[in-house]
């Protein structure tokens, strides 16, 4: 009995039935092996790509095709402009100026509203590239934005939809960060003066940190802050944990998209690169439910 037929193609060929034209049938031989290999390749391709492609189609392509350019679903859809309006370049320039003025008005109204409260709040001026901390209408810290990345959605959404979105200050809902909000140290009181003398420590300079945080505001606004300088090696673990949390947020977004029949809100993200000291001051200073006045 030939126990080595797989490794002997000639023998295999001799044992194989031929079809009417004298060719080997697909049950074996070189072409059989080839077709088997091809089937396997096909199977592999199906197994590997079917799920990711379905995921891309249902979570990205279909939602993007259906995307209605609105910053947040809570905003009333404005009537679409009649196509008959044609604008000259002069009119366009005037309209752009009016849009700028309306944005400025919304921004100043928001600042005025926030100035009437006691809490520290944020003021983000994208036009002048500054993010300020204010208390009662007074700028206590002005932070220059070194670089920023604004979501493509801002360019797609008309002023008519953006204006109602920015006419009220935003409220922070939750945040994730590489640094703690308050660097609390718990100390147990010593029992007597001898124990107090033993446990006495000299203050040390604050631990080296890397400051990365994301503020999730209501109405779909997401502000990401990153320090300008490369992080110190000591802080890499915190950054890893922060990025893992961000991935979790991404997964939540994807699940929301897959679950909902209609296209859910996608974040209106603004990423700001600032100095480490500025980023730290902002994160530590603002209350957990801080508010924000945004100028586009």
């Amino acid at each position: 009995m030939n126990t080595n037929q797989f490794s002997n193609p000639e023998q295999t060929r001799a044992n194989k039935p031929l079809n009417q034209t004298g060719q080997e049938t697909s049950s074996g031989g070189a072409s059989g092996m080839f077709s088997q290999l091809r089937n396997m390749k096909l199977l592999l391709a199906v197994v590997v790509f079917a799920l990711p492609i379905a995921l891309i189609v249902f979570s990205i392509i279909i939602p993007v095709v259906r995307y209605k350019p609105m910053p947040w679903s809570g905003i009333k859809q404005t009537e679409t402009a009649s196509a008959s309006i044609s604008l000259s370049s002069e009119q366009k320039a005037i309209l752009k100026k009016v849009i700028e003025l309306e944005n400025e008005k919304a921004y100043r109204n928001n600042r005025l509203e926030l100035a009437n409260h006691d809490s520290i709040y944020l003021v983000l001026d994208l036009a002048d590239r500054v993010v300020n901390l204010e208390i009662k209408g007074v700028t206590v810290r002005s932070n220059k934005i070194v670089d920023m990345v604004v979501s493509n959605r801002f360019g797609l959404i008309s002023h008519e939809s953006l204006l109602p979105w920015i006419t009220e200050p935003f409220t922070l809902e939750h945040a994730i960060s590489t640094i703690p909000k308050s660097p609390i140290v718990i100390k147990q009181a010593p029992k007597d003066t001898i124990e107090a003398a033993k446990t006495a420590t000299t203050p040390e300079p604050p631990k080296v940190t890397a400051v990365y945080f994301t503020f999730y505001f209501d109405r779909n606004l997401v502000l990401e802050f990153e320090q300008k300088d490369a992080p110190n090696e000591e802080a890499l673990d915190e950054i890893k944990a922060y990025r893992a949390q961000k991935k979790k947020e991404n997964s939540k977004s994807l699940l929301r998209t897959l679950k909902s029949a209609s296209e859910p809100d996608q974040p209106m993200t603004i990423k700001l690169i600032v100095n480490e000291a500025d980023a730290k001051a902002i994160y530590r200073a603002v209350p957990t439910k801080t508010r924000l006045a945004l100028k586009l």
Partner: peptide
């Protein structure tokens, strides 16, 4: 999702007008 938006047309001024 952001990247996939590139083919969408930009916002217009007509509605404001």
């Amino acid at each position: 999702h952001e990247t996939a938006l590139w083919f969408k047309s930009k916002a217009e001024l007509k509605a404001t007008a």
